[in-house]
Design a protein around this nucleic acid. Sequence first.
DNA 1: AGAGTCGATCATGCAGACTGATCGCTGGCC
DNA 2: GGCCAGCGATCAGTCTGCATGATCGACTCT
Lengths: 312, 312
Amino acid sequence: MQTDRWPGLELRHLIALRAIAAEGSFGRAATSLGYTQSAISQQIAALERIVGTRVVSRPGGPRRVSLTEAGRVLQCHAEGIDARLQAAYADVAALAAGSAGPLRVGTYQSVGARVLPTLLRRFGTAWPDVDVSLTESADDGELLALVECGELDVSFCVLPMPAGPFEAVELLRDPYVLVVPAGSPLARRVRPPTLSELVELPLIGYRQCRTALKVESHLRVAGREPRIVFRSDDNGTVQGLVAAGVGVALVPRLTVDASDPAIALVEPGGQIPPRLIGLAWHRDRRRSPAAAALVEEARAVCREFEGRTAAA
Amino acid sequence: MQTDRWPGLELRHLIALRAIAAEGSFGRAATSLGYTQSAISQQIAALERIVGTRVVSRPGGPRRVSLTEAGRVLQCHAEGIDARLQAAYADVAALAAGSAGPLRVGTYQSVGARVLPTLLRRFGTAWPDVDVSLTESADDGELLALVECGELDVSFCVLPMPAGPFEAVELLRDPYVLVVPAGSPLARRVRPPTLSELVELPLIGYRQCRTALKVESHLRVAGREPRIVFRSDDNGTVQGLVAAGVGVALVPRLTVDASDPAIALVEPGGQIPPRLIGLAWHRDRRRSPAAAALVEEARAVCREFEGRTAAA
DNA sequence: AGAGTCGATCATGCAGACTGATCGCTGGCC
DNA sequence: GGCCAGCGATCAGTCTGCATGATCGACTCT
């Protein structure tokens, strides 16, 4: 343990450092932690004595203090340690709940509608004791944040992931399709529309989805700004707007309910890279047998799913 | 910080837990930490009060204590936190040393002889202030352990790496070649020798190299046990033994000094996957500009190197 | 049954963490 | 230019709480 390098270092020192970084002042950090300014002053003094370097630069006078470079490095590691403690807490809590404990899964609409039903049904028969709880969000970054702080055990996500203490497996490649009204002339076309044709169309887009931004910037490569006539994060709404003739939508196939007679799907021409859907978990957390089984089951379900759509 | 989940938790509790896991007894853990048994007893009691679960199972009587499952989970996270603290220490120490500080690089013989000279020469002219110190080992696991505890900044390694808090880039693919004595009939063969022919030959192997084991098990697939007539970890020795006619050696091309007139190189037939050489660093440590530059320079050097050998 | 080993517990002593008050410094304001 | 407000450093005092040492109870092995 750190015994041999930084004897005397305590978590409370790192907590104080972090509070100072957040508040920009010893006094405010103190009140935010329920201490007095004097206590914080002494804690930082102790910390600096331990690490042997100044970690907070005090400009003097009524100016905000800031971390030195060493302080910033230290704070970064403090965040990592904090994350690890959160993971430990989540693990111990999960262990205390036992195998009957909840398995908390993050998901979003498209995955939820297509692969989750099958997955949950199969998993439920294999692990009847585990009760799965779902958390849905339109933005997978939000879900990953919950995974990071231990409030979710696994979560669907779009690959590549933002940086963080995560591990993930790729589940399936979800190609983009163009959703058009059923009667549209586009639906009868033989040649797929090119990227530059796509840019000309009135598009219905998402509001805050990370993948949607990527697709739009992809369209932008064609030279012109895509014309987004409406934004919604609800797949049903997007599809309904297309059916109503408001515009067309370039969306991952999984988000589409293909049985809707009011719309038709068109393969877009330009090579738009498919959306990669994965299943992610906390790198540093213990993988419970149930969670591991869920991941395996999800892979199996998605393999079948891809096989089916490829055959169709 | 953990303030909000486990108030009162201190590093010393985790240290005590770890000592108990290592020693198997409160008393021995106490003496190993310089405490009394009573103190350890109270620390574990406090820890269990904080996390809300028993973390050490005390069988009673003169039997070894052991960690409960929760305890083991906690200890695993404690190791991670310890590693993070070591990384923090290394980072702060490196920062204190300034840009003139040492850049400690782990390497092994073959890389050292072929790519390091060029790399160091170029890096030295670009970063004259940085003094690079080298640590050599025949086993890259040893080097990675030094990276993990912060005593090396970057290290060459063979991919895929053992698990650990590492990141790495692939530098080059190093194909295996068969080293035979210069006069050997093998050197004049047109068709490359097959795997099953290789197994028949007297082989000179390595002693403790992780990659060597992989190659030998690869040969074993051919059905028969390869006949290792001698083992050495020194590339020069291996090559000398081949030259002396003791046997032949199946080694990565980088380890061979091709200018030696006493030996000849033969392309082996069976598809032996090439050795992948990478450069690894600690995932959680700050990448100093010098270290990042070294990595980039190494990639450049190896790209050229591969181009040259591919052309030859 | 007795000896020996181990952890739990209790009273005690003490280090060190926090408090509250005070001082010195700096920048902004009149 | 002088005053004031805000900030951190410092110091003495208090008190929490950690470690100590002795003792007790539990258990195993002989």
